[in-house]
């Protein structure tokens, strides 16, 4: 199958490959996979307390389209607010990378990875809010 030139570019020069420490407060990690082909994708976002995505890293083990999709989203999400990043649709990835129909699931994977990473970050911060709120209450009471 012929890959589009954009897929090849991301595949040959993937952007933002690597990882952040997954336990860090400002890091959200999303690990998703495509069970039909066994591809796995890890996307990590570094997010400011105000909810702005500062930086992104990925590691994907899978086909060229899966690698290109994750590489592309690391660039796409940088500088966006999490609310905005949550609205990114896989169709935008399909369009940008010119993915053929059999590779659409790779773009779905990338979309799900963004959501999973943001959800992970939020869950870390909900815990913070709770633990921050609890002593406050105790002090009041």
């Amino acid at each position: 199958m012929a890959y589009s030139s954009k897929v090849l570019d991301h595949y040959n020069n993937p952007r933002n490959v690597g990882s952040f420490p997954k336990d860090a407060e400002d890091v959200g990690t999303g690990v998703v996979g495509a069970p039909e082909c066994g591809d796995v994708m890890k996307l990590q976002l570094k997010i400011t307390p105000e909810g702005v995505i500062e930086d992104a890293r990925f590691k994907t083990f899978g086909c060229g389209s899966a690698i290109a999709s994750s590489s592309y989203v690391t660039e796409l999400v940088k500088g966006k607010r999490i609310e905005e990043a949550m609205t990114i649709k896989n169709s935008a990835i399909v369009q940008e990378l010119n993915l053929p129909p059999v590779k659409i699931h790779c773009s779905v994977l990338a979309e799900d990875a963004i959501k999973a990473a943001i959800t992970d970050w939020k869950s870390k911060h909900e815990k913070d809010e709770k633990s921050a709120a609890a002593p406050g209450k105790a002090a009041q009471g």
Binding site: V31, G33, P35, K42, K59
Partner: peptide
């Protein structure tokens, strides 16, 4: 469909896959 509502990889499995890869 195998993939519908089923894209979360269990953490211990993901860890093993990433380690081996």
């Amino acid at each position: 469909k195998l993939a519908s509502d089923n894209q979360k990889v269990p953490p211990e499995l993901a860890e093993m896959i990433f380690d081996v890869q």
